[in-house]
Amino acid sequence: MPKINGNEIRPGNVLEHNGGLWAAVKVEHVKPGKGGAFAQVELRNLRNGSKLNERFRSADKVERVRLEQRDMQFLFESDGLLTFMDTETYDQVTLPAEILGDRRPFLQDGMTIQVEFYESEALNATLPQKVTCRIAETEPVVKGQTAANSFKPAVLDNGVRISVPPFVGQDEDIVVNTETMEYAERA
């Protein structure tokens, strides 16, 4: 595995540190008035989700880990565990449902997502950036409501509440950005 200097750590990097695998969440480069510069890094443990704040000086060496990304198909959920299948080898992998956090409702049956592996251990899952959902309920269109930036509340078929433009009606399919959890476009 390649070693990098402490000042080369970027958000999203996966590091081997203190015997565990950590993802860099936030990186802030600090140049104090006295002493050498350092990177203040917020790390999240990929195995148990705990957080850690560390300082890395430019002379510090850390091991950067590359995770293998595989496309897998979502099969089912039981007892808080999500089961995915590799579409090439038909191997099945289970991950805890909380790994998706508040984006969990956007996971649909048969959806293909990216699962990240370290050696043969599944560590993380990422939803596609855009998902198509149906609007379960929303307010009717009000005539004359043409304000440039007006949105109205809507509830999706998965129970998530978002804001949509006034021209979108009930039972319409829309595309939702799963990173920002906002309306993207009509489907």
Results as ranks from 00 to 15, higher is better:
Met1Gln: 11
Lys3Gly: 00
Asn5Gln: 11
Ile9Gly: 03
Leu15Ala: 07
Trp22Val: 07
Ala23Glu: 12
Ala23His: 04
Val25Gln: 12
Val27Ile: 07
Val27Cys: 12
His29Phe: 14
Val30Asp: 05
Gly33Ala: 12
Gly33Cys: 00
Gly35Asn: 06
Gly35Phe: 07
Ala37Arg: 10
Ala39Val: 00
Ala39Ile: 00
Gln40Lys: 11
Arg44Glu: 08
Gly49Gln: 07
Gly49Val: 15
Ser50Leu: 12
Leu52Pro: 03
Arg55Pro: 04
Ala59Cys: 08
Lys61Thr: 08
Val62Glu: 01
Arg64Val: 14
Arg66Lys: 15
Glu68Asp: 15
Met72Arg: 00
Gln73Ser: 07
Leu75Tyr: 04
Ser78Glu: 09
Gly80Pro: 13
Leu81Ser: 06
Leu82Ala: 11
Glu88His: 09
Thr89Ile: 08
Thr89Ser: 14
Asp91Lys: 10
Asp91Glu: 15
Leu95Met: 14
Ala97Leu: 08
Glu98His: 08
Glu98Ala: 08
Leu100Cys: 13
Gly101Tyr: 01
Arg104Trp: 04
Phe106Tyr: 12
Met111Thr: 06
Thr112Trp: 00
Ile113Gln: 06
Glu116Cys: 10
Ser120Gly: 10
Ser120Thr: 12
Ser120Cys: 05
Leu123His: 06
Pro128Leu: 09
Pro128Val: 00
Gln129Thr: 12
Thr132Asp: 15
Thr132Val: 15
Cys133Glu: 15
Arg134Asn: 11
Val141His: 13
Thr146His: 00
Ser150Lys: 03
Lys152Val: 15
Lys152His: 05
Pro153Gly: 02
Pro153Asn: 06
Leu156Asp: 01
Asp157Ala: 04
Asp157Gly: 06
Asp157His: 08
Asn158Pro: 07
Gly159Cys: 14
Val160Ala: 05
Val160Cys: 10
Val160Lys: 09
Ser163Ile: 03
Pro166Gly: 10
Phe167Trp: 13
Phe167Asn: 15
Gln170Cys: 11
Glu172Ala: 02
Asp173Gln: 11
Ile174Ser: 04
Val175Thr: 15
Val175His: 01
Val175Asn: 02
Ala184Gly: 03
Ala187Asp: 08
